[in-house]
Every structure is written in C-alpha cells, then in structure tokens.
C-alpha cells in the first residue's frame, strides 16, 4: 500500500486543489435554487432588521462612534456577522444533515469523487452562501445610500474569504458532532462571545486589554477590520495580516476537518 501525498495511507484524496468539488457545489446550489426565496429572505431580512432597529433605535441615543454615526459603524459589523452566520449554519446543520440524516455524502463517496472533494464542495458552497448574504445586504445598503461605492465593492471578496474561514471551522465542528444538539456548544461558547468582542456592535479598543488581546486572535475581528474602513471609503490598515489570518484559518481548519471526517467516515 503506497502512502498518498495528503492524508491516510492508501485512501484516495483530491480536495481543494482539484475540480471534484464542483459537482458537489452544484448539487447544493440546485437544492438552494428550489428554496431560494425563503433562504435569501432569511439571509437578508434578519441582519437588516437588526441593522435598522439597532442603528436607528440605539443610534439616536448614542454619540458618534469612531467619528461616524452608529448606523454607519454597525453596517460593517452586520455584514460580517451575517456572512459568518450563513457559512456557519450551512457547514453545521446543513452539512450534518447531508452527512448523517440524508446520507448524501455516502451516495457521493461510491462515485469517483473522494471525501476530500465532498468537503471541498461543502466549503465552497458554505462560502458561497456567505457571499450571497453579504452581497444582498450590500445591495440594499447601497440603495439606501449607506455605503461608499466603488471602494465598498472590495467588501465582496472579503465576505467570501470570511465565509471560507467560518465554513472550514464549521466543518470541523460538524465532523465532531454526535448530534445536532452538539452545535449549541459551538454557538454558546464560541460564536456568541466572539460576536461581542470582535467589534461588531461596539468598538473593541475600550475593552479591557486582556479581552482586546483575545479578540485580536479571532477571525471575526480581522474580517471587521477589513470591511469597516472599506464601507466608510477608506483603505484598511494591515491588509496583508488580516487576509493572511482569514486564509490561514481556512487552510488549517479545512485540513483538520478533512482529517476528522476521514476518521469518522472512512475507517
């Protein structure tokens, strides 16, 4: 038995760097197309309600934050948070359904595609959902005159990258989950605290230094620090660092997800 370049000896692998993910992505896309309206509504309406509600409601009571209206401040946070949510839900609940409940992955694994292809397809798909979500919010806020085009268009690739990072982490959690209930830990222990300390709703510079330090390690903070200036018509600082963190998280988490899912399904 010869060792394979990536992963367990003898098991065929392809993954991120082949095109095997495309038919998996297209399968998920076809399902989404059938339910596109409620899905888009969920991706769009929820963050918009928060944004308008908090932005106008809370914003009227607040002074200007970091030199801008609270609404202007909040938009970037909501776009990034909804991108994270879209990728997270897709790579937890939907991917888990396809792995466990519907056995969709089992059906694909007996074709020439490998498990790496399946996971890469899920990764690309979950990131695509983030993109869709971010894109539709950007459309609405541009129509409301709340973003500064054309610099704001750079938000789109950042949203995509943010989707990749959280999809990859989500696939790790999916690989470990014994049941749907397990995802609650992930939300309560990771996603929700991260939302609070990553500069989504308020600036993190005023937080205690230790929390600020923790936050600076979280992928969500890096996404916010790229998106916020872009929406305000400024060039972000430390672009390379922020992009590198999001890319790094994607690659490392995806490798871990592949390892864990192989151990789970191909043993």
């Amino acid at each position: 038995m010869s060792a394979h370049p990536s992963g367990k000896p003898g098991l065929p692998s392809a993954g991120l760097f082949s095109f095997g993910w495309i038919p998996v992505w297209r399968r998920n896309f076809l399902v989404w197309r059938k339910l596109a309206f409620p899905s888009l509504l969920g991706n769009l309406a929820d963050p918009l309600i928060y944004m308008l509600g908090l932005g106008y409601g809370l914003g009227r009571m607040l002074p200007r934050i970091s030199g801008v209206d609270y609404m202007q401040f909040l938009i970037a946070g909501m776009i990034v948070a909804s991108a994270m949510n879209a990728a997270t839900f897709e790579s937890l609940y939907s991917a888990f359904s396809r792995m466990r409940t519907q056995k969709t992955w089992d059906a694909i694994l007996v074709t020439p595609l490998s498990l790496d292809d399946v996971l890469a397809g899920e990764l690309f798909w979950a990131a695509s959902k983030s993109f869709l979500s971010g894109f539709s919010i950007l459309l609405v806020i541009s129509a409301l005159g709340l973003s500064s085009l054309p610099l704001a268009l750079w938000v789109l690739p950042i949203i995509f990258l943010t989707g990749f990072a959280f999809a990859a982490i989500g696939l790790v959690v999916c690989a470990l989950a014994p049941s749907y209930d397990f995802f609650m830990y992930y939300f309560t222990l990771f996603i929700t605290p991260m939302l609070m300390i990553s500069g989504i709703f308020f600036p993190v510079e005023n937080l205690p230094h230790s929390i600020y330090l923790v936050a600076s390690w979280l992928p969500l903070s890096h996404a916010v620090r790229l998106v916020r200036p872009l929406l305000l018509g400024e060039c972000p600082q430390d672009i390379v660092l922020h992009v590198a963190v999001l890319l790094g998280v994607t690659i490392v988490a995806f490798r871990v997800a592949v390892f864990l899912t192989r151990r789970r399904l191909l043993n």
């Binding site: 038995m1 003898g10 098991l11 065929p12 392809a14 007996v110 074709t111 020439p112 595609l113």
Partner: peptide, 10 residues
C-alpha cells in the same frame, strides 16, 4: 484498491 479506488469506482 484502495490506492486506485477513484478510477475503479468510475
């Protein structure tokens, strides 16, 4: 198998 499984499964 398993080295050449993808080709076999085609």
């Amino acid at each position: 198998i398993p080295d050449d499984a993808c080709a076999a499964r085609a």
